[in-house]
Design a protein around this nucleic acid. Structure first.
Lengths: 187, 187
DNA sequence: TGTACATCAGTGAACGCGCGTTCACTGATGTAC
DNA sequence: TGTACATCAGTGAACGCGCGTTCACTGATGTAC
């Protein structure tokens, strides 16, 4: 059994993308190998180029896929609600989100790699940030996105600091003051 | 001329460290090679192990050195002043700081790499964050560090988002709302 | 519906390349007398 | 202060290894009649 049907090919492509979206967050973009991605998708590395032109173009799509998974909480069918935003914020500053990188928000994990990368990557990242801000704005009941940008910056900044310092009182304090601050923004 | 004097060796070590501190911010930790660091320090790669046990231990010291350079604005001789903090904040959200990674604040650029790295790296990062928070607290005229953590989170979050999205209106807006928010915190 | 054949998804070996690290070597530095 | 010699900072070739990418191959899928 070697060749697969067209629908199986589409499934393979989706699996490769999902694996890549998780692995670049867990391990970093440059540090994630094509072989590793294919293995995680249950395939061997040689078939990769039937699906993508290069590692770089896989990454561009994987960045978007990472935002999809980071915005899982929000439904695509309707504008975000205040409850959804509240849940998003709570999960954002939770221990699970700090430790579990595979399905985490791509903004804190990929920003530096993308700042050093191509414009194509930046476009995918920007589109993801726009989607995130839109959902937050909807749930905060406003059209201007200033407040949701402040909220997102506060969440991202706290997570970036908390992840780098490791477990301990400093991490706890960063998360606690962020929660307090963010609660004020959601009134 | 091959062997150098003890004082020349110390100079070499300092140059290696300075090069590494800049290159890991500009290129990422895993993506920065020992040869690249040595070349940037004006040496060849073979001599590296006269100065450091491994790339990993170089990185641990380079993280601290990166914080030194990121805190250049503050004097080590006296507690930080309100003026120094104001200058720090202005530079933090400037175009030069977004684009010039070599001498930039290590927190947004290294957090993800360090979250995936060793406890030794996290210890160096935490010590650097503590130093940063201490300087900000001093300049904000307070003993509790809650407010300086909020300030630092806001700066870091805004920079992380601004760097990832590339030049354009979204970046400008993120920086603008961060400046407005931070100005409120410094009253 | 059956048959013949072109297509192509996926495999695994191979490519050139750069990585971190080791090592034999050079010759100025530092030290013992 | 001079001399003899051990030390060791720095060089550059070499190591095993994993990277992204290419390629010949396999055989089920899809298509033309």
């Amino acid at each position: 059994m070697v060749r697969r049907s067209q629908s199986e090919k589409a499934e393979s492509r989706a699996k490769i993308l999902e694996s890549a979206a998780g692995l670049i967050r867990a391990n970093g973009i440059e540090t994630t190998g094509v072989s590793e991605v294919m293995k995680s998708a249950g395939l061997t590395h040689g078939g990769f180029y039937r699906h993508f032109d290069s590692k770089d173009s896989l990454i561009a799509e994987a960045i978007s896929a990472a935002f999809d998974s980071g915005l899982r909480i929000f439904s695509e069918d309707h504008p975000a609600t205040a409850d959804e935003v509240e849940e998003y914020v709570e999960q954002y500053l939770s221990g699970d989100h700090i430790e579990g990188l595979f399905g985490a928000c791509p903004i804190p994990l990929l920003s530096a790699d993308i700042a050093r990368g191509s414009d194509e990557w930046k476009d995918a990242f920007e589109e993801g940030v726009e989607r995130t801000v839109t959902k937050l704005s909807e749930g905060m009941g406003q059209t201007a996105k200033d407040d949701s940008l402040v909220l997102l910056s506060a969440l991202v900044g706290a997570l970036v600091i908390a992840r780098g310092v490791g477990e301990g009182p400093l991490r706890d304090q960063v998360l606690q003051v962020a929660k307090d601050k963010v609660r004020g923004l959601l009134q």
